[in-house]
Structures are given as C-alpha cells and as structure tokens.
Amino acid sequence: MLGIIGGNGAGKSTLLRLCGGVLRPTEGVVQRTGRAEAFFDFTAGLQPDLTCQDNVILGLIISGHSVREARSLVQEVLEFAGIWDNRLNPVRVLSTGMKLRLGFAIATQQRPDLLLLDEVVSVGDADFQERSSDRTAAFLRAGTAAVLVSHDMQQVQSLCQRAIWIHHGQSASYGSADVVTKAYIESAYDVDNSNSGTGITGHEPPGMQLATIVNGNPDTATVTSGASIELGFEINVDQALGVFRPAISLLDDNGQLQTYLYYQSTIEHDGGRLSFSVTLDKMGLADGDYQIALYLHSADWSTTLGEFADAASIEIENAPEGAGVLRPQSEWCVPNK
C-alpha cells in the first residue's frame, strides 16, 4: 500500500482523484490498469428515494454485474451491512452510520485491482469497523494495490510500505513509509523552532496559560533514572483550538533534542480549559537536567497552534554507569564455560 501525506491544501486528495479518473490532469498522463474502486464518499452513489435492495442492485449493475447477478447478491450485501431488515425501506430513512455501511458493502462486493482510500480504511461502529477492515485486508492479501490518503501518521506507518509526502503540489519525499512519515513529523518540529539554536523559541502564545504537573509536583521534579514520568497539562485558552494533536520534546542541558513524541490521535477543543496527560514509561536517561516543551499542532501538522518552551523540567539522578544519554536497565547473561 502507498500512503500519501501532507498538509491541508497540499494536493493529496487531488492526486487521489486523478488516479481514480474523477479529475483529468492538465499536464502529464495518469496510467493505471484493471478496475479501480475509489473510497471517497460511500454514500455519494446512494439514491435516497430508492429502497435499500434497489440501491444494491443499481450499484452492482454500475460496477459491472449483470441484472441476474446483482439480484442474487442483494441478501449477501445487505446482511454484510447489517440492514437486511431494512431492505424494503428507502435509503433516506437510514441513519448516517447505516448509509455508510450500505455504501461500503456495495462498493466492496467485488474485489478491485486498485483501491483508492481517502482517509477511510474502515467505517461504521466498532463491530462493522472490524468487518470492513478485515475485508480491506483480504483484498490486499489477494493482490489488490492500494493508495491511502491520511493525516494519521500511525495509520500510514502500520498499513503502508511506501509513502509520498506532498507539499504545495510537489513531491517533497518518497520512500519507505517509516522514513517519510518521520521526516514529515520532524519537519513540523524544525519549522516551529528554526529561529533558535537550541530548537526552542521560547514563545508562549497569547491567550493561553499553561500549568504543568510532573509526578504530582508543579512544573519540575527529580526522578530516578529508569522510573516513569507522568506529565499533566492544563491549558486555559481564550478561543477554540478545533481539532489538534499535542506533542512534546525532551532536550538535555546542552539544548540537544533527545526525543520528540506526539499523540497518535487528535483532540477536539471547543474553548475554555483543556486537560490531558502523558506518561513516559521507564525513562532510562543519564544524570542531568532536561527540559520539556509542549506543542499543539493542527491535525494535519501544517500549523502550530501553541508552543510552550518551558512546559516542564526534570532532573534525572542515580543513572546506571555508562556513556551516552540513554541508560536503560540492563541484565547480562553469560553462559558457563
């Protein structure tokens, strides 16, 4: 599977629609072989005034089935969607979730040669998400090629072998999904902090006030190397941040970045007080002072909504003997000679 990543307006969905033939290129050529199935909006092809079973028949005929084949598959499709009891009801009376399940079931009844996925790998409630994910995975095992547009870097890393990073309509990077997504994430850190030799600008956004708790203490704590560190953040914000994802960086006392971690999902903020926490498990670090910065990124990483350079500080002590910053607990096993 190929992942396509980039900020809002970079051209990701446009590229996907070019691959699907929804749009025509003004320059160059798009070549593909076999049958493509584009998962842009599963409900787009549903006719609201037709019954569910008539929508199945119509959808399957458009996909290339004969009328007889389409009729024979109605029960299978509707049972997969979990709406067999609604087969004679018009689609307009279905809930949004039921429409999504119906659209997915119709679109995936026949294995395509190419899947084009715009932010969608599975749909519906937890039970149907598992079934739809299993069907998508079965397609991939059977040889279906897939292209996935996503803002979820963890999803791209887990599902895709290769990735392309689109920036202002151009390819910024192409290669291994792990390498490209990490470069994209690190670019957000680099852009935020390009004006500072230490990687921290020291800018605290207006209209935001931060309070940090480190292992139960305000702002700072002394921690034994190898112990866990719990960071609790409470932010007062004048305006709504919308959908965002938090990230933290850990710098040593020389200002060198030691790690940059981010929340794998997103948080939705409607305004007012906002609280969240992160636990750093078994932090095996060398003795010394470390600084933690907090970042609030937009969901697509294109904008930094807030940055707190001095969010917290920690002092590490009693580290194991050794060299370098990383000091994990170690246990040696030497066989008897």
Rank of each mutant, 00 (worst) to 15 (best):
Q109V: 09
L73F: 06
A81R: 02
H203I: 15
A146C: 01
Q110E: 14
V179C: 02
F128Q: 06
G232W: 11
G202A: 03
S330A: 14
S132C: 09
Q329M: 10
T198E: 01
V120M: 05
S265V: 06
L58Q: 11
V67C: 04
G322T: 09
Q264Y: 06
I57L: 12
S72W: 00
N86L: 15
L148M: 07
Q109Y: 10
D219P: 00
G197F: 05
A299D: 11
S298I: 00
T51H: 04
N318H: 15
D310N: 13
R245V: 01
S66L: 04
A211F: 12
N318P: 00
D54W: 01
V334P: 00
A138P: 00
F128L: 04
G232S: 10
V77E: 01
L294H: 04
W165N: 05
S249V: 11
A247Y: 05
S132Q: 05
T220C: 10
L231G: 06
L78S: 03
F139M: 07
H168W: 00
D54F: 03
V214Q: 03
H168F: 09
V325D: 03
S158W: 00
T224H: 09
A10T: 03
L159I: 10
L18Y: 02
D152H: 08
T303H: 14
M208N: 05
G34P: 01
T279S: 15
A227K: 12
V214A: 08
